[in-house]
Design a protein around this nucleic acid. Structure first.
Length: 472
RNA sequence: GGCGCCAUUGCCAAGCGGUAAGGCAAGGGUCUGCAAAACCCUUAUCCCCGGUUCGAGUCCGGGUCUCGCCUCCA
């Protein structure tokens, strides 16, 4: 057994992981906002969390994974100003917030499923936890960590000296109001809303001890993690962008209630870049899983692509890079499939065991997927015969690339019954031309089939027809 | 302006002090009427300058470049 090492943002180093309760891991993942489609950048982050969960399970641990769905408008910047994203969606789509949340939650679930992201043990919307959030806010007020202003309840950062421990930022060094409008009622510019008082017309609001209102956008994670995982649990994940504000605030809130930093390990996935630059919803240069599919890619090619870089590194998305991933994944599957028909060779099992050990070592080294995939490739070329499929099946518990699926749609040799009659006619004509050694005609007919979207490959006894992947 | 990350072959990328994994692409070859597939072979000394060390892509110092964060964002 290789020990499992994970990088902890809190300590800025890799630490050996062992769960609080032997054999069981509690893990929280900051989930998606559901007022627009998730981008592939978002999805990279959930692939990362999924891999982490799978690696924990691969190590024999049982994992309770909790994910929130942010369905209540994040309004607000840290200064609690700005537009409400849900409100924007409501205006754009002429639907109720609830309809929008349901729609985009569904879209997210579908994308996750396409990427073989396992469903978390608990995945639940923030609005189902208003009560738990209010309880925490009340507790914070009672304990003196929060104060009321004209427009809400704010966390008082001056009561939490260790603020900034995760990001290494020092409050004094930050320029107050450098780029955001200062809220004059706040005692400190970094104080953040726990609860906001709602104007009458506000789209989503609930009763509270302070009248109608809605939650601040950090409290949902604190409340949900506490409810499902307890005051102290093993791992909390999210994107790197969460480090400086969201997770700092979460720690401040939770620790003020419970006396402890809620999670022992904080892990963060790096951003996906597009053409060397930032991808973000606000820049509008985003792609969705649907966009990839529309270009003829398999969603799992994107998952494989995610494994080409370590989760703590930037990964640069380009279409050629995705093609490279798709090719790689395809040939991997082909090799595995072929290999299973080969006779077993002496020593193959022992070799497979060694590959398994290397694979475990790679994934246990802070989820080093590029190395793990390299181990798979080494194994694929090691002449393992039927043992390769067994090994790949085992690796797939972590990789989840459907390695044993065999041919993809494009690779699959089509039965004659699957072909349109026109294509069959041309094929028959071509067969005759080849018998007559009329190569010019034969090649011309192949071109015709190509235009119809079919590729013909001549074999000993005849030919095979496959679909040509869509090109754009 | 402040803070941080990166810099490895045509592209993506691993590497955590001992003489550069893996993938994609490309080239050569075998096979094929041709093509495709498959198989075999080939392709880097690690941004620059100093330093530490028997030995550095790998540590330290100084540059340069890139990207990111400091504002909603995975």
């Amino acid at each position: 057994m290789h020990p499992l090492y994970l990088y902890n943002t809190l300590s800025r180093r890799k630490e050996e992981f062992s769960p609080l309760v032997p054999g069981k891991v509690g893990m929280y993942t900051c989930g998606p906002t559901v007022y627009q489609y998730a981008t592939i950048g978002n999805m990279r982050s959930y692939v990362f969390a999924d891999v982490l969960r799978r690696v924990l399970e691969y190590n024999g641990l049982s994992v309770k994974m909790v994910m929130n769905i942010t369905d209540v408008g994040h309004l607000v910047s840290d200064a609690d100003e700005g537009e409400d994203k849900m409100l924007v969606a409501v205006g754009r789509e002429k639907k109720t917030p609830w309809e929008i949340a349901r729609y985009y939650t569904g879209a997210f679930m579908k994308d996750a499923a396409l990427l073989n992201i396992k469903r978390p043990s608990v995945v639940s919307p923030a609005t189902e936890h208003i009560e738990e959030m209010l309880e925490m806010v009340v507790e914070l007020v009672e304990k003196g960590y929060a104060y009321e202003t004209g427009d809400g309840i704010y966390y008082d950062i001056s009561k939490f000296p260790s603020y900034g421990q995760l990001s290494g930022t020092r409050l004094e060094e930050q320029l107050a109001g450098a780029r955001v409008q200062e809220n004059p009622d706040k005692k400190h510019h970094a104080d953040f809303a726990l609860w906001k008082k709602a104007p009458k017309e506000h789209i989503m609001q609930w009763e509270s001890p302070w009248g109608m209102g809605y939650p601040g956008w950090h409290i949902e994670c604190s409340a949900m993690a506490r409810k499902y995982l307890g005051d102290r649990f093993d791992i909390h994940t999210g994107g790197v962008d969460h480090i400086p504000i969201h997770h700092e605030n979460e720690i401040a809130q939770s620790q003020s209630c419970t006396g402890e930093v809620p999670a022992r390990f904080w892990m963060h996935g790096e951003f996906l870049l597009v053409d060397g630059g930032k991808m973000s919803k606000s820049l509008g240069n985003t792609y969705t899983v649907d966009d990839l599919v529309a270009k003829g890619f398999e969603p799992l090619a994107f998952r494989y692509f995610c494994f080409s870089a370590h989760y703590r590194s930037h990964l640069n998305f380009t279409w050629p890079a995705l093609e490279s991933a798709q090719s790689g994944l395809r040939s991997l599957r082909t090799i595995i499939q072929k290999s299973s028909k080969d006779p077993a060779k002496a020593g193959a099992q022992e070799k497979a065991e060694r590959f398994r050990a290397s694979f475990l070592e790679a994934v246990n080294d802070d989820l080093n997927m590029p190395r793990a995939v390299a181990v798979l490739w080494d194994a694929a070329k090691a002449d393992l015969g039927p043992w390769l499929a067994r090994l790949a099946d085992d690796f797939d518990r972590v990789l989840a690339l459907d390695l044993l699926k065999g041919a993809t749609r494009e690779d699959k040799v089509l039965a004659l019954s699957e072909l349109p009659p026109e294509a069959l006619a041309i094929l028959e004509e071509r067969r005759l031309a080849r018998e007559a050694k009329d190569w010019v005609k034969s090649d011309r007919l192949r071109e015709e089939l190509k235009a119809m979207g079919f590729a013909v490959k001549d074999t000993k006894g005849g030919y095979e027809v496959t679909r040509i992947p869509r090109q754009d």
